[in-house]
Simulated scan of single mutants.
Amino acid sequence: MHSQLTSHSAAAVEYSGPYGPIGALLADTGGPYAVLVPGYTGSKEDFAPLLDPLAAAGFSPLAVDLPGQQDSTGPAVEDEYLPGPLGDVVAGLVNGLDRPVVLLGHSYGGLVVRRAVLAGARVRGLTLLSSGPADLPHGPRRQVLDLGEPLLRAQGIAGAHRALEVLNAGNPRWLSLAEPVREFLNLRFLRNRPESLLGMSAGLRTEPDLVGELGEALGETPRLVVCGETDDAWPTSLQRWMAERLGSEFVTVVGAGHSPAVENPEGLLAVLLPAWKAWVA
């Protein structure tokens, strides 16, 4: 079963960022970089099942923690975790690399990487994975954000985690995970800065539609929109509409929901690799 604990040969590395070290996993093959940016409450480990296959295909996968996540230092200011400031961080990282870059953002990371492109990130191609054209639509995921904010402000990370444990106790998807995976996810959540969760939550609820601006900034740079066939965050119909406006191919990954990289990595790689190889040829 694929998970954030999938074994891989990437090394733990650090890059300099405006708030301190940026934690990352890198399998440096000497080939073009595939920079992978996670979403809200996520981390670089969300891409673990992709790392070795991407390296075997000639890429140098570089999966990062956004500031405030897991192994990346973050500021104590909530607004610095909105997509714009985080996009500046990613743009700085990308433009400091010494080889061509294909850039992928998952979920909230998709909102961040498009801001990175708008901030001048030099990329050979952009992939938006299970992300959307604007703020998160109303539904269960957004409701959790709305309910979680006052709890997080009143009781901090530990209190929010206790509430999450109560929700997960009746969640079949959570209970189906192996115990080491649940332990990792619990510890990862507790490592988030509260400001990062609050700031990213605000970003998910306020980000404007920037599809037109993104298309102009990309120009002739190729782009791809991908999601799981049962994505429950931004509806697949909305992501398809975003792809149409971007002039992008839109592909759904069978057997996957909101997190294809861990739910069906082989299916996701079958979409990514042909496109990315063409982009860097």
Rank of each mutant, 00 (worst) to 15 (best):
L204I: 10
E183C: 01
A134Y: 13
L210R: 05
G120A: 09
P133C: 04
L164I: 01
A169E: 06
L175Y: 02
P172H: 08
V123F: 06
V211S: 12
H161S: 02
F184L: 09
L197S: 05
P172M: 07
N186M: 09
E183L: 06
E207K: 03
L197F: 11
L177Q: 05
L164H: 00
N192R: 14
W174S: 03
L164S: 08
G170V: 14
R142S: 14
L126S: 09
R122E: 12
S176W: 07
L167T: 04
L210F: 03
G199Y: 03
R173P: 00
E149C: 05
L151D: 08
V123A: 11
R205L: 09
D135Y: 06
P150S: 09
E183G: 02
F189C: 06
L152E: 02
S201C: 03
A169F: 00
L167I: 08
R142P: 07
R141F: 11
R141H: 14
A202V: 03
F189G: 12
E195N: 04
G156T: 03
P172W: 12
F184I: 07
E207N: 14
P194S: 14
L129Y: 02
V181Q: 03
E195D: 11
E165W: 00
W174V: 13
G139V: 04
R141V: 10
E165N: 01
L177E: 02
P194V: 15
A160M: 10
A134Q: 14
G170Q: 03
T127N: 01
L145C: 13
P180H: 03
F184E: 08
T127Q: 00
I157H: 03
R141C: 03
P150K: 04
V211T: 15
E165A: 05
L126A: 11
T127A: 14
L167Q: 11
R162G: 10
G212C: 07
R191S: 12
A154Y: 02
P172C: 09
L147T: 06
L204Y: 05
R173N: 01
G203V: 13
R124M: 00
R173L: 12
D135V: 00
L145I: 13
P180Q: 01
P208R: 01
Q155E: 15
L167Y: 11
R162W: 13
R191K: 13
G199E: 07
N171S: 10
G212I: 04
A119K: 11
H138P: 12
S176Q: 10
I157Q: 03
Q143D: 14
R191P: 00
A121F: 13
L129G: 02
R142F: 08
L128G: 09
V123T: 09
F189Y: 15
S130F: 00
R188D: 15
L167S: 08
L185Q: 07
G139I: 05
S130Q: 04
L151S: 07
R153G: 11
P180T: 04
S176E: 14
L175M: 07
A134W: 10
H138Q: 08
P137E: 12
P194R: 15
R122L: 08
